[in-house]
Amino acid sequence: MITVHLPGSVTDAFHADPVISLAAHTLSDVLQRLDQTWPGMASWLVEPDDCFRENLSVFISGRRLPPRAHVSTPVGDAAEVWILRAISGG
């Protein structure tokens, strides 16, 4: 099982839990599960090319992924995944 932390903007809009536990081998598994539970959520996080949206930051167990990481990125057993809004201003 892994743990996934979702950004507040997403949990507010979807009335979703901010932290969930699920079984996953890749981030694609994570997104599939999220979209099953809260339909439409995946499109708030990734684009049609299966890369994360530009202004989101994704961490897996303390390792920050490069911008627009692909959902095929593997996640290890007991991983802690954080999906965060990137630094922004204005």
């Binding site: 903007s9 439409g40 499109s43 996080l45």
Partner: peptide
Amino acid sequence: SVFHGANVRRSHDWGENWDTGGSGLE
């Protein structure tokens, strides 16, 4: 949204509550 892209969101109470948009707007 700069974070979550473009959505057509809907409300049935003049904006007090909103859904998260439909699918396929891509």
